[in-house]
């Protein structure tokens, strides 16, 4: 089953506590300005205020992969994780323009332009992909952002598992609290 992120917009809404962003930076050691996940807020201060953590959603048909001129972006066969090979990335920024979610991130590079692309790896690789001996560092696909998400808003894992979890959660709320929900509106 492909690995996916899922956002619960129904019950456990995001509080923008920043745990995901902070743990990502701690765990993956991304430099300043590179956020593999970041929280977007819209309608701040309005009754419709919504916060959304936006990691890479590891699309089934990733636009970034299609537009990458050097095939640096690839989707792993075994679990569908979209990764970037920094050896072949030339930092053109085309993926940034093509991604609907703003997942590709760039550190400040030469001439004040962007550096190589970095993106969410489902925690399988840190920012410095290689160790001292030049071997690729590989870790379990267990995103720390979803593990620390204080509200459980951000779900990660196999697509069928997390969708079942969300379905259960929403159903529970709808069946137990529906009258009370009406009371307040």
């Amino acid at each position: 089953m492909p690995k996916k992120f899922l956002l619960d917009m129904y019950v456990n809404r995001c509080l923008r506590c920043g745990g995901c962003m902070a743990v990502c930076k701690t765990h993956n050691r991304t430099p300043e300005g590179v956020h593999r996940i970041r929280v977007i807020t819209f309608d701040e201060g309005e009754p419709t205020e919504t916060n959304m953590p936006m990691p890479c959603l590891h699309c089934n048909e990733p636009p970034c992969m299609y537009v990458c001129p050097t095939k640096a972006i690839y989707k792993r066969k075994e679990d569908g994780i979209v990764l970037v090979n920094k050896d072949t990335c030339i930092g053109c920024g085309y993926c940034l323009m093509a991604c609907p979610f703003g997942a590709p991130q760039f550190e400040k590079g030469t001439f004040g332009n962007r550096g190589k692309m970095d993106k969410c790896t489902f925690c399988v690789e840190p920012y410095e992909q290689k160790d001292e001996q030049g071997r690729l560092i590989q870790r379990e696909p267990k995103p720390r952002c979803a593990m620390v998400c204080a509200t459980g808003h951000l779900l990660a894992g196999d697509a069928d598992e997390i969708s079942a979890k969300l379905r259960e959660r929403v159903g529970y709320r709808m069946s137990r609290g529906v009258e009370k929900t009406f009371l307040t509106f």
Partner: peptide, 11 residues
């Protein structure tokens, strides 16, 4: 010039 760095340019 818009690319990541000297290496990326050469490549």
């Amino acid at each position: 010039l818009d690319l990541a760095g000297i290496k990326a340019m050469l490549r």
